[in-house]
Design a protein around this nucleic acid. Structure first.
Length: 725
DNA sequence: AATATTCCCGTTTTT
DNA sequence: CGGGAATATT
């Protein structure tokens, strides 16, 4: 046993530098690992978890917390690969809290089958709450209410706490809405994202016994991205480690980019004050980027005042200069960058080693068009979009109502989906009746007295009630089969089959949902429908960044945290966009915006390109822009500025997405012209449901493929070019 | 009751 | 420019 342990620890300490080794070997007491970008943080954290498991602790005594599911999965995989991770708890804060609330539902005063309401559901519920307070949603914007409530919860204030503060008249209304919202949540057995954290934080503060049990179990706690913790997460960390003090926090104040979500950078800045006798390890050697990239990023971040001094250095090559490109318009920017990418790919760069980052999702559109036009594969990290799609939410709503019959958001989503003749009037009458009889809307559906009041619609409602009954067996099925059962028994699949014959995406998405559920089952043995719904509610964008298909990756700067690419392009370096400002008068947390830019720049291994446009279309209008102040903060030497002229495009953007007028004459063998590549002939045409793909063979023997609707191709008649071809 | 149309709104980042 | 909600139409 001892000999084995030595072998394992030796293996765990192999190829680490001195501070890394120090961090891995630290066992007892608080430890803060300040890890600069690319400093091998993940490696250190996983090795440390494994080291603990191999020396002083059993794996189940270790709790490792991350912020994204993707990070959790990666950490778990890497620990598993080290061969000692079996039984360790590796989860996101949210997933960990959700699980705790279910296990200790009775102590938390909540029903075990609670639903997690996503942002969409929450928005709907807030609207309901506003209306219930006899206020109008035009005067009281749900978005504003949402942020008031979310901010309060992140600071661990209950609705009652908020209401008991000294409030002006506007805040008093917010307080009423807040109280009402909480009541609705309670009635529906629902919790929102923020509740997961603050309910657990309050629970373990109030319930010393439970807290003791947890402290007993989790002897060692690791928290990644500590700079992004909010008050509730901080409280949880404090409570769970207050006795043994074995907290290991890793993070980097310079990468704190979630202040708008309640993250409090002072949590990491004050770590030494909060945890007595804390050891601090600085990981400053960068293994990722070239010297030029690192020094540009380092100079930029030096303008911030809220930091912990770090000296980033690297032994890597100097590398090519960081490039700043200035373009005429946003479209020019997109096309020029994509063309640049095209030539790099032709020179042998892997598409998957290229990332384009932007401050707001809206900037992806012109890039997307440019990619389609050039025929270069790309993928956009917008994972939640899948779980936010109508067809997906429909199916999940059916499952939700089975698990939690009080979930009215789900009920009203599907009561007339697919349409079954239960319209707005019937629904409001049903709600009235339910109130009158003091029963829930779902109970009302089965209540003869209520049905009698519904007149002709009664039979429809009765049929709906019967349908829900036939779904009951799905509760006992594995998640993927339950999903399949829902789709076929509710008529959802049939509905999407005939809705738009040409568009098969909804059906494909439904199949994909079954696949996702099957994958979930495989990865989590012995799970139920409740677990699957929880998983579906807590999944996010960054979790689904897949890069196996060898495509260029497009994503927001926020989503890019923790990733790296050989080539990085950051677009839209304009004042108001990066740093982002909502309106002229609204303030900016310029330091956080600068950190965001820093995060983006340090994603690059070999080549970094920053770009801006002089004119950019925003809210449908083209506006003159001002260069981002960040560009002027970069070191003057070693940056290469290029001025890119605008170019006339051969196809107007109004034509994009449409087939050319002479489409009947496009056939195999037709000659076509591409503005850059010249003449070629069509080798193959593939008809897909919504797009036509053409393969073109050029004279030099190379072959490229485009989506015709977006490609910059024109057909040329034989006699026009004579013998040239 | 369901669908088609218009119009008006706002417009970050995400668990 | 695009989505959602209110309004008009079948």
């Amino acid at each position: 046993m001892h000999q084995g342990t030595d072998a394992i620890t030796e293996h765990l300490l192999a190829d680490l530098n001195e501070p890394q080794r120090q961090a891995v070997c630290h066992v007892e007491g608080p430890l803060l690992i300040l890890a600069g970008p690319g400093s091998g943080k993940t490696r250190v954290v996983t090795r440390r978890a494994a080291y603990l498991a191999a020396t002083v602790a059993r794996p189940y005594q270790i709790l490792a917390i991350t912020f994204t599911n993707k990070a959790a999965r990666e950490m778990r995989d890497r620990i598993d690969a080290l061969g000692v991770g079996e039984g360790m708890t590796v989860a996101t804060f949210h997933a960990f809290c959700a699980r705790l609330l279910r296990i200790h539902a009775d102590r938390a005063g909540i029903s075990r089958n609670f639903t997690i309401f996503d942002t969409d559901d929450r928005r709907k519920l807030i609207k309901k709450a506003i209306e219930a307070c006899n206020l109008s949603t035009t005067n009281w914007s749900p978005a504003a209410v949402e942020s008031v409530i979310s901010t309060a919860k992140n600071d661990m204030l209950t609705a009652e706490d908020y209401a008991s503060d000294n409030l002006d008249w506007q805040q008093q209304s917010y307080a009423r809405i807040f109280l009402c919202y909480e009541e609705l949540l309670k009635k529906m057995n629902g919790v929102d994202f923020d509740d997961l954290l603050c309910r657990v934080a309050r629970l373990i503060q109030a319930d010393a016994e439970l807290c003791g049990i947890l402290e007993q179990q989790y002897k060692y706690m690791l928290i990644d991205e500590y700079q992004d913790t909010n008050a509730a997460q901080y409280a949880i960390a404090r409570q769970l480690t207050k006795t043994h003090q074995n907290i290991c926090a890793t993070g980097d104040p310079d990468q704190s980019i979630y202040g708008w979500r309640g993250a409090d950078i002072s949590n990491i800045l004050n770590f030494e004050r909060d945890f007595k006798d804390a050891t601090i390890v600085r990981l400053e050697q960068n293994y990722r980027s070239t010297q030029k990239i690192l020094s540009a990023a380092d100079v930029l971040i030096a303008s911030n005042s809220q930091r912990k001094e770090k000296t980033l250095w690297t032994e890597n090559d100097e590398g090519p200069a960081v490039v700043v490109m200035e373009h005429e318009s946003g479209d020019d920017e997109a096309r020029s960058i994509v063309r640049d990418i095209g030539s790099r790919i032709r020179e042998g760069t892997q598409a998957r080693e290229i990332g384009i980052l932007y401050r707001i999702n809206a900037l992806s559109r012109s890039l997307e068009e440019a990619f389609l036009r050039e025929g270069i594969p790309y993928s956009i990290a917008r994972g939640v979009e899948f779980y936010n799609r109508r067809e997906i939410k429909d199916v999940l709503a059916y499952a939700r109502i089975l698990v939690n019959p009080t979930d009215e958001i789900a009920l009203f989503r599907i009561i007339n989906t697919p349409t079954r003749g239960i319209g707005a009037t019937t629904i409001s009458r049903l709600v009235e009746q339910a109130k009158g009889h003091q029963i829930s809307p779902l109970e009302a559906i089965y209540h003869e007295g209520v049905l009698a009041e519904l007149g002709r619609s009664a039979s429809k409602v009765r049929a709906f009630g019967a349908l829900l009954q036939t779904l009951q067996p799905a509760l006992k099925l594995p998640a993927s089969q339950a999903m399949e059962y829902m789709m076929s028994h509710t008529g959802i699949r049939a509905m999407y089959r005939k809705e738009d014959i040409a568009d098969e995406t909804p059906l494909a998405n439904l199949d994909e949902l079954i696949n996702a559920a099957a994958t979930f089952e495989r990865e989590h043995e012995g799970t139920t429908l409740v677990d699957w719904l929880e998983h579906a509610a807590l999944i996010s964008d960054v979790d689904i960044v897949t890069n196996e298909n060898g495509a260029v990756t497009l994503m927001t700067l926020h989503a890019a945290k923790g990733l790296e690419f050989d080539n990085v392009y950051i677009v839209g370096l304009e004042d108001g966009l990066l740093p982002f400002r909502r309106h002229e008068e609204a303030g900016v947390d310029e330091e956080e915006e600068r950190r965001l830019c820093f995060v983006g720049m340090t994603r690059a291994r070999k080549r970094l390109t920053l770009s801006r446009a002089r004119y950019r279309m925003r809210r449908g209008m083209t506006e003159r822009t001002v260069k981002s102040p960040f560009l002027d903060e970069l070191p003057r030497v070693e940056i290469e500025w290029t001025n890119c002229e605008g170019d006339a495009r051969s196809r107007r953007s109004a034509d994009l997405g449409r087939l050319p007028d002479d489409i009947e004459q496009w056939e195999i063998g037709s000659i076509v012209r591409h503005p850059v590549l010249g003449l070629g002939s069509i080798a193959m045409i593939h008809q897909h449901p919504r797009q036509t793909r053409v393969d073109v063979k050029f004279r030099d023997g190379s072959e490229r493929s485009w989506v015709l609707e977006f490609a910059d191709l024109e057909r040329v008649d034989y006699d026009e070019i004579g013998d040239a071809f």
